[in-house]
Structure formats: structure tokens, C-alpha cells
Design a binder for these strands. Structure first.
Lengths: 337, 337
DNA sequence: CTGAAAGCGCTAACAA
DNA sequence: TTGTTAGCGCTTTCAG
């Protein structure tokens, strides 16, 4: 059973192939009745245009690149499935492209990739959304792109955000409402843009609750389990140790829990712990982790939508913000257990 | 800067485009000196053939489909990056295709996908490697494919295995060597082919250690955290409870740890727990999980190699087995703590 | 509003 | 061993 071609559709609809092409591409200048006739023929034949042929002939490639360099598998999978969904629905394919954001030749490689694979656009996920050199190269080259969770709101038309700061403020106030006054915080990897916003949210949450910010309750992590463990161990060794620790992501929170366990502290009796992201780990650890659910899937779907609009030259929606929400589980509780 | 085409290469090398084509495709009947001349021109121009054009013109599409329906993000990412690596190296692209293995129309969809996207071949990961209907369809349609970790060795030329059974036997004997005699086992999802082999390995390990198999120490799980928790709770409620639990994967092992914690049992003091896979969770949980590291990445690279060979009609290597290895961590210890 | 003709960059079949 | 020619299935001119 051979694939049906545009010619067969044209023959069935009794029009030229060019008219079929117009219908496929939603071009103007086709009478409605003709359009319907062609659509009907397309349906009856189960016709779908050959991607390679349109790529070869046309200016567009119907190909979008997805760039990532994120150690969290669940993050990547969530982004990927969101983007896949939206792109497939619009007959675009995606080219998965793992990167090394520290690679000095990254920009050149991406430029090359775009030219060579004739990509119509690019989706950047953290920490690539934070890669200034890359971003300005894309801007200069007029390559369409969208950033998931970029570090600032300087380019809202090409960004999808979540409310990192607000929700971190909320989490901090929640911990305060449980009676905690010494609430530690573990900062994530400085190369990740959301890190700053989350940290600021924590600080605002403290002051909102009338708690004085103490430098000594802040640890520097790098988004990894081990970095969270080490940072937490430092914090917990202090004479007056924190009674709660809020970590910038779930892996670090899990590391903090390990440190607490090893120091003989019970959770949440002696120490409350909260994270950010709600990765699967958060609910598979014991006690289960209070955290913040980041709507990665929805954010990446929105990112794909924005990109496709941009590619088609359609008006791009304004600032896109999809809120994260708190998920209270068992790792947090009132002070003193 | 336009892309260089085969014509420019031909001009520079002073041969016809057909000769360039021959060199690109490693076809025979090109004199060595000519081949070198062409290669040189290709290098100097930085030429790379346009995929769309070769797809359109040729019989092959240089496109391979990756099929998965696995809830474990880290599994999927590992497979994907292995396959990507090998395929990119050979100038093949991959088409990521999440599936629903319970979908009754799956076979038709895949058949359609292969025809429509003109896929050269398919890589099946569990539980799709276990999908008999799908597998026989592919065989009938003569569609090249490879299975990662299929349920049996009936088609070794199209399979990549690991030593599930052997290593589970080893793990069981290890637990026995710590003094455990009541070693429980939580079986994974029956739709996953490796499940049987792992269970058999456990049984053999018992008998190898001179321990009688007891039906009462076996729980049925479904690969999920929650199913492991529930199965473990049943086992631990027995009058004579197991002193060790070996679960068919890490998620279930984590669930078992939760059940133990909630029943006030310490790990490994009161209960040793072991898993399988060595997903990130295994080292991010407390106490860290003794488990078996499955070489997913290597297996999928091998799978890609086999598939590409098959597509090119090159001889396909025999049975491919890449061993999993035990990773002893803190969740197992001598009986009685 | 519609169509005819000319490619896109490559491979396949055949000729030389 | 090499080259010539004709497409692959579509989009892009440009004419009607």
C-alpha cells in the first residue's frame, strides 16, 4: 500500500496540485467550496503530506529543536512530552538535542545545527534559557526561539514563566505559620535562573512573617543531592540549628533529609524539610516531601505554542505565567514535633 | 551562508555528483584515489548531505523510531541518550514515540507511523518489547527492529539482554550470606518481560543457599512505588515476617522501605531491602538502597548498533548480553542489625 | 481565485 | 570505474 500523494488528492478533487497545496498550508485565495472539496478528498484518501518533500521544496522545515542540559530525567521527560504533544498536533517534528551548557563551542554548534537541520525554531530549557551568549546569538540571527523559565522578564514574548518567587514566599510563610523561626534555605545552582527568584521569595516570606533574615541559615547548593546534603550538614552543625530547611529543589531537599537522618534528627519532629519541583522522588522518599509542584508539562506546551505562533508569524501572546502550587506532605510539621 | 550541496563538492573534486553520492554512502566501485579526492572536497567545504533530499530520493529515510511506554523517566532518558548517540554518529535521526501499550490500536498506529514517516527501523523498549502482537506484526511486515530486554531469547538476533536471572540469584545469595533466611520477594508488573527472569533468579538464589522457597514471602507488585508499599505491608504483617525484602525494581523497594518505616522497623537493622535498576532514587533515599545496576545506556547503544546493521543488511551479531552488577549500599546488612 | 512549470538536493537505474 | 538522466513529492514562482 503506497502512500497517497498530492497528485492523487488533486485528481480526486479535480483541482491542480497547487490548490491542494494551498489548502494544506492554510493559504488564502481558495474559494470555500473548493477548500471543502479538497479537504474531503484529503480525508477520503487519508492523505498526509510528506515531510521530506515539503522540507526540501519549501522554506520551512516543520522541525523544531528541543535543547536541554538538565540532570533531572523527569524534568526533561515532562518538557519533552509536552512539546511533542503540541508539535505533533501541528504537524511539526522535534529534534531532541542534549547539550553541554558549559561547552565553549555551544553557540557555534547550535548555529550549525539550526542551519544544517534547517530548524524552524528552538525551545530552550534551563539552564540553556539562562545562556546569554546563546540567547543573543539567536536574537541576532533572527532564529525563532522560546525560553522555558528564563532568569528574567526581559523578553516576555519569548518566555514561559512560573511564579517561583510568589510560591516560595508562600512556602516560607507556611513554615513560619507552623511556628518555625529558624528557617534555613539552601540555594540552588547559580547558573539556573530560577534560583534567584526562589531565594528572593524565601527572603520576602521571612520578612512577611516578621522573621529576621540570618545569613548563617543560608547554605549554597548546586541542585544535586550531594550538595544539598553537604549544605544541610553545615547548617545543622550550628549551635542554634534551624528547625526547618527549605531547599531550592527536591534533590537538595532529599540530601538535607539524609544529613538530618545521619545526625539522628527526626523529620518532621526535629526538622521540617521542604523542596521545590515535585519530582517523583518527592513522593517516593520517607517521609514524603512537602514541596512545590512546578507545572513543567503545561509550561512546555505553552512554550511550543508560542514558538509555533512565532514561526508562523502569528501574533505572539503576552507574558505567559503558569503558577506552581504548594504540595504539603509529611516532611513538614509544627515546631517541636 | 548557504548550505553547500553535492554539486559544489562534485565541482571541487572534479567528478560527477553520482560519484560523490557513492562516496557519501560508502558504495563500492569507486577508485581509492577518487574516494580520497571526494572526501577531501567534502571536508574542505564542510559538506553534509541534506537529509530531506536523501529521504525523498532514496529508499532509506535515515530515520529510526524509538518506542517507549515506561513510567520511569530515568529509564527513558538513558535509553534515549544511548540511542541518540549511536544514531547521530551514523547520521541517522530518531523519532521519539511515546506509546500506550494497552491501546488496542497500537499495532495499526505503529504500522501507520512506519509507513508515513518512512521509518527505517524501530527500537522497542519494555514493555513494548513484550508486546507479542506488535512484534509479530513487525516481523510479518519485514520492518527492521530491535528489542531491549525482551521476555525471552527466541529472537536473539534482534535482542539486547541483561543477566537479570543471574544477578538476582547473586543478590539473593548475598542476602542469605548476611544471615537472612526469610527473604521476601516482590514481583514486578507481569507485563514486563524481565519480571519472570528476576523472580526465577531469586528462587534459584534461595535454593543455592539451601533456603526453602515459601509462597508466603512472595508479594505481587506492579513496578510502582505504591504497589511495593502495599505488597511489603502484607509481607511484614505476617506472624513470622521476612528479615529481608528483595523487590523487582527500585521504586517498589522504596515503597517497601516506606512500609517498614511506618511499621516502626529500622533499615537495615530490622529489615534489609534490595531493589533493581539503580535509578537515581536508589542513591537519593535514606538509607541508600542496595540494588542492581542495569546498564541501560550500554544496552540501548548496542540496540541501536544492531538495528543500524540490520537496516544496512550487514551481518547482525549474535546474542547480545550486557551484565548488570550489584551495588551494595546501606539498606542491607547482617540479620539482627 | 486557480494552474503550469521549474526546481529543492539527492538517489536509482541505466549507459558508457 | 564513472557519468547521465529521470524522478522523489512538494513549494515557489509567475501566468492566467
Amino acid at each position: 500500500m503506497r502512500k497517497t500523494t498530492i497528485e492523487e488528492v488533486a485528481a480526486l478533487a479535480r483541482v491542480s496540485i497547487k490548490t491542494v497545496s494551498r489548502v494544506i498550508n492554510d493559504e488564502p485565495n481558495v474559494r470555500d467550496t473548493t477548500r471543502l472539496k479538497v479537504r474531503d478528498a484529503i480525508d477520503r484518501l487519508g492523505y498526509r503530506p510528506d515531510q521530506s518533500a515539503r522540507r526540501l521544496a519549501g522554506a520551512r522545515s516543520y522541525l523544531v529543536g528541543l535543547l536541554y542540559d538538565n540532570p533531572s530525567a523527569s524534568y526533561v521527560i515532562d518538557v519533552q512530552s509536552g512539546v511533542l504533544d503540541r508539535c505533533r498536533a501541528e504537524n511539526y517534528e522535534i529534534l531532541i538535542n542534549p547539550c553541554d551548557y558549559k561547552n565553549h563551542a555551544l553557540c557555534a554548534e547550535i548555529e550549525n545545527l539550526v542551519r544544517h537541520a534547517r530548524l524552524d525554531g528552538l525551545i530552550l530549557t534551563p539552564p540553556l534559557s539562562d545562556h546569554q551568549e546563546l540567547v543573543s546569538m539567536l536574537r541576532k540571527q533572527l532564529i525563532p526561539f522560546v525560553m522555558v523559565a528564563p532568569p528574567n522578564q526581559s523578553d516576555p514574548a519569548r518566555s514561559v514563566f512560573t511564579n517561583d518567587r510568589d510560591v516560595c514566599r508562600e512556602m516560607t510563610r507556611y513554615l513560619a505559620s507552623l511556628g518555625h523561626e529558624r528557617i534555613g534555605y539552601i540555594i540552588g545552582h547559580p547558573d539556573h535562573g530560577a534560583v534567584g527568584a526562589r531565594y528572593r521569595g524565601y527572603q520576602e516570606g521571612l520578612s512577611g512573617a516578621g522573621i529576621r533574615f540570618r545569613k548563617g541559615l543560608i547554605g549554597q547548593g548546586y541542585n544535586s543531592y550531594i550538595s544539598g546534603e553537604e549544605a544541610a550538614r553545615q547548617l545543622l552543625k550550628r549551635k542554634v540549628r534551624p528547625t526547618a530547611i527549605f531547599a531550592g529543589n527536591d534533590e537538595m531537599a532529599a540530601g538535607a533529609m539524609k544529613a538530618a537522618h545521619e545526625m539522628g534528627l527526626t523529620i518532621p519532629g526535629d526538622l521540617s524539610v521542604a523542596g521545590f519541583d515535585d519530582v517523583p522522588l518527592a513522593s517516593q522518599i520517607w517521609p514524603s516531601l512537602t514541596t512545590i509542584r512546578q507545572p513543567i508539562r503545561a509550561m512546555s506546551e505553552k512554550a511550543a505554542d508560542i514558538l509555533l505562533n512565532q514561526i508562523r508569524g502569528e501574533p505572539v501572546n503576552g507574558l505567559q505565567m503558569i503558577p506552581s502550587v504548594m504540595v504539603i506532605r509529611d516532611s513538614t510539621g509544627p515546631i517541636g514535633g
